[in-house]
Amino acid sequence: MRSDITIIKPKVGWQSLDFRELWRYRELLLSLVMRDIKVRYKQTVLGFSWAIIQPLTTMVVFTLLFGKLAKIPSDGVPYPVFVFSGLLAWNFFQSAVSAGGVSLLSAGGMISKVYFPRIIVPLASIGVSVVDFCISMLILFCLMAIYTLPPTPQMLFLPLFFCGLALTSFGLSAWLSAVTVSYRDFRFVIPFVLQIWMYVTPVIYPVSFIPEKWRFLIYFNPISGWVEGIRSSVLGRDIDWAAIGISSLLTLVIAYIGLKYFERADSRFADVI
């Protein structure tokens, strides 16, 4: 162990992620996720039930607004179940990206005082959203039980699609967190863009709601394939593999660019934060 030599030299140009080092710091990742989860509901009366109340309330409001009032079709599935299955995927994406985008900035104190692989910071902020997603999933299963919708074999694909969505969120978060360090404008841009993004994603409406002529447009949205895939797998409908394929491709591109950018900006973080 004493012969381990650390070499410190200037970081120039594109760096590649050191996975071995990341693995050594896995406990830090876990600690950060645990910290954020523990802290979140401290000193609240309802505590952990907020994680259930929030998505349920949104679902009720959306059902009344879009299902009953606007009468948006839901492909034959009860609208509450339909909208909730989309919402949980969307909520994951939204909370992961908005927390991830500012994660480096919020961890500024730590970054300027201690060394650790910086990529852990956006990674940890996504970890918290994963927990929320799992809770929402349980609620969805309860909802399905209430509406007597049986579990289907397609559900086996659910973990796969979720990983795709998580990877998109991670790539985007890594990139956004790195640019936000230098250009704080993104703190204002991110929530604004996310708000619009939800309406161009099939969350409150099914893909079939879009005129056939324009349906290809939805494929340009890297997460629409995942959101639709998660919904289809839960509700046991046919999976649109073309959409999944395009989303996979876009996700890989986003994750690659995001990570590369992050690693390139890495050496600057402590100086500009």
Binding site: T6, I7, I8, K9, P10, S112, V114, Y115, A270, D271
Partner: peptide, 20 residues
């Protein structure tokens, strides 16, 4: 800060033996 790898140097090289 350079020795603890918080910020990377602009030039030169440092070698440190063991856990820091």
């Amino acid at each position: 800060k350079v020795l603890s790898r918080i910020t990377s140097p602009t030039s030169g090289r440092v070698e440190i033996r063991g856990r820091v």
